[in-house]
Structure formats: C-alpha cells, structure tokens
Design a protein around this nucleic acid. Sequence first.
DNA 1: GTCCAGGATTCAG
DNA 2: CTGAATCATGGA
Length: 310
Amino acid sequence: MAAAGWSAWQPLRLTQDVPAATLAEQLDGGQAFRWRQDEAGVWAGIFGATVAAVRVGPAGLEGRVRGSWVAGFAALRAYLDAEGVQAGLADALPWRSDTVLAGAMQCYPGLRILRQPPRDALIGFLCSSNKRILQIREMVARLATELGEGLGEGQHALPEWAALAAASDATLQRCALGYRAAFLRGTAERLCARPRWEAEFAALSTPALLTELRALPGVGPKVAACVALFGFGRWESFPVDTWVVQALGGAYGLVGWPPDRLEAFGRIHFGAAAGLAQQFLFSAARAGQLAVAPPAMLPVRPRSRGRGRR
DNA sequence: GTCCAGGATTCAG
DNA sequence: CTGAATCATGGA
C-alpha cells in the first residue's frame, strides 16, 4: 500500500469556471454518488481509483489528489471537463428559442456532465431504481467499504465485478440494496466474464451501446441512458426519470406522454447535447426552479405509432 | 401506519 | 402489444 498523502492544492484551470452552487449540484446532484462536503466547504470524493478533493478558491476551482500526483491530477481535470469540451455543446443547445431551457440553464450556470468511469456509473445507477439520491449514496458507500479495493486511509474504490460476483448474500445485505442486489450480482457475473467490456462498449454506436447495456440484468431504458451519458460521454443520450417526466409535462405541456416518447422528444428537440439539456432540466426541476409554461396548448396524448415497416 | 423513491421485471389481458 | 403488480429497504 502506497500510503501517499494529499498533494498540495493546485488550480484546476478550467476553461470556464464554475460557481459554488453549480459545483455542488454537479458533484452531489445525482450524477455521481461519492462526493461529500465538509464544514470548510471542501468537496471530497472518489472516482475510479482516484481520491480527490475540490474547493472554490479566490482564483477559481482548486483541487488536490492522493497518491500519484501527475496521474491523479490529470484524471481530476478530465473528470471535470477542465478543457471545456461541453462549453460548445451547451451553447449549441436551443436555449435562444426555448425559454424553459434558458431558465433552467441560468439556474446552475456552467453545469456540466461529469466524465465518470463506466463501472462507477453502472454501479451507481444499478442502485438507483426506485430510490432517492441520499439512499443511493448510502448503498454505494457501503458497496465500496464492503467490497471495494482499498485506496488508503479507509477509502475504497467501487468493487470490481469479480468481487461483486463473489460477494455473499450477507455482505450484499449489509449494503441495503434490497432487490437490487440480484441486479448487481447478475450484471457483475456477466461483465467479469468479459474483461474487455469497457473498450468493447465504448466502440459501439450510441444506439448499439444502449441495446448492449439494456441486455444486462437490472438495466432498463433509463439506467442505460444514464450510463451512456455519465459513463461513456454520450451527450445525446436523454435519460427520462420521474423528474424529467415532471419537467417535460409541466413546462413543455407533454402531460401523459410515456417515457419512450419523451425520450424521443428530448433527443429531437435538444439535439446532439440532449443529455446536457436533460441535466439542466433535471437540476432545475429538483430545485423547484423550473418555469412552467402557460397551458396554452393542451397536450395531446400521442398515439402509439405503428410498426416501422408495413 | 402509510406513502414514496434518477425503475426494472414479470405477469395478465 | 399495453398496463398493472411486484420487487426490498429506509426515510418522511
């Protein structure tokens, strides 16, 4: 065990800096589940095998990491999209013509999708079904403690698939997963038999990636979309959860639309960065800050379309 | 005690 | 094919 300490605080030098409230929403708003803020306002978290801390300094965001400084710092900057890949995507969203989206984007300016390791995202969202963010965080924390590789100082990575597949019922029960324990173990068994899964999945087109993810136990449309977005950087992926249903229903008048149709609406209306738009809407809705459109045009519940071919 | 949660799966009709 | 019941757990 390399019991390396913390590196010194360093400016993260984001091309576009992030207000404190946006940083909090980004780290602890339901994208990742492994960040906590201490009394001094410092965020501490783990992604992959990187133990990191982030704070808002006088001259912008600062970070420090534990262990290898060079690798850890580069990983942290990539995780936070320090190079600003998403800035152009955000600007290309249709906020100029969509006042609801524009309002949501003003709610958390500069909000970005975290670039999470695929396994982190998959484990997190396998735990997410029918659970609140606070409880997902607790499940994920226990999974790391019980089954994750030690990273020093009592910190743990999320478990490898092999560790998860081999875990006893009693161990999984201690993680308070409920019926999701079978999902995690089932997916772990599939993927530990497929060591190159990350590279193989990353090489797929987004529709093929979603199909492949949905073939895993416990992965339905919404979880697949989250893993594609947060774990594989597929910005066009548009997860439809209860909050997005509320947001699109209330602010866009799409009341009663089934999730798969809302997903199609999001993809078409928001375009190549639909997932980023989704995150703005999700966060604004959760904050109770989403503008509600006037009920001028009452929604028409769409009829299911016929088969693609006749 | 009741209700609900960043849903998925299974089962009826 | 669509819609409803069921799933395990904890917090409000």
